[in-house]
Amino acid sequence: MSCPTYALPAPPIPLAYLGSTERKKMAIDISAKLLNDKKVIAALQDLSNDKVDKAIKSGISSAARGAKKHIAGGLKAGGLNLKSTRIKAGLEDPKIRNGGNSAFIWASQDPVTANSYGVKQNRRGLGVTFYKGERKTIKRGFIAKVCH
């Protein structure tokens, strides 16, 4: 009979700890500059305000759909030793607000456990790599095996 293993939650680490008691908000500003493209400038002048608003809302919605991937990529590029699927699981789907003029992505309140960081039991405690290349030992830490 195999027993499931459970590791204690890792101590909160800044940036690595996706959950908290408060929701975190990230703002992304998008700006564009036209460099003397006469066809584009003429096409923009022909648009009505309704079409411009619709185009802005569509652009924000499109950018929000790919935000989880970019957040996960940014955290991994910073050296965080978590799988992208675990990072994305800690992020909620984008919420469009203000009539489509802004989008919010909330981080969940679930803590990241040591198992997500690839914990290994050793003689001194738990060996955990929070950031790539930085192995830490949590003294007297242990992995609990629960058998029913």
Rank of each mutant, 00 (worst) to 15 (best):
T129M: 14
S84V: 06
A55D: 02
S116V: 10
G66M: 02
I96N: 06
G66Q: 02
A67L: 09
Q45A: 09
A114C: 15
N36F: 03
G127T: 13
K54R: 11
P12Y: 05
I87R: 04
M26E: 05
N101A: 12
I13L: 02
K54Y: 08
T85Q: 14
P11W: 00
L35G: 00
K57R: 10
R86C: 01
A10V: 06
G78C: 08
C3E: 06
R97G: 03
G100T: 09
R124H: 12
D50V: 05
K139M: 11
R140S: 15
K136R: 15
K68I: 03
N49E: 14
K54C: 00
K88L: 03
R23F: 08
K83E: 13
A107V: 13
G59Y: 00
P9K: 02
N81M: 07
I13V: 09
N49D: 14
S102I: 08
L8A: 12
G99A: 09
G19C: 08
E134D: 14
I96A: 04
I138T: 04
V119T: 09
G73Q: 06
M26G: 06
I143P: 04
F142L: 12
V128Q: 04
R135P: 11
I13R: 01
A43G: 03
G19F: 06
L47H: 03
P12R: 10
R86G: 00
K51P: 00
K38L: 07
L15K: 03
A16K: 02
Q109Y: 10
N81H: 13
